[in-house]
Amino acid sequence: MSKVFIAFQLNEDTRPIIEAVLADNPHAVANESPAMVKIDAEGQLVIKRNSIEELIGRDFDLQELQINLITISGHLDEDDDEFKLSWLN
C-alpha cells in the first residue's frame, strides 16, 4: 500500500487541525521540519470537519484548510464533512 501525505505550515491555525487529523487517523505519522509538518499515512487519510470544530469551538469550513496547506499526495475527495486523500492501488 502506498503512502498519502498532507503538509501544513506550523502555526496557531494548524495546531488543532493537526491534532484532529492525528486523532482521527491513528495510523498517521507526523514529521516536523522547520516551519512545517508533514503527515504521512498508509493508504488513506481523512480530515473531518466535526473533529476540528470540537477542538476550536467554532464552525469550520474544510476549504479553510487551503490557507495553511503546503502540499498533498494522493487522490482527493472533498465534500462538506470530509477531506479524504487515498491511493486506489
Partner: peptide, 13 residues
C-alpha cells in the same frame, strides 16, 4: 521515489 512511485503504481490501472 516514494511519492512518484505511489502515483505511478496508482496510474498502472
Amino acid at each position: 521515489e516514494q511519492n512518484g512511485g505511489a502515483l505511478f503504481a496508482d496510474l498502472a490501472r
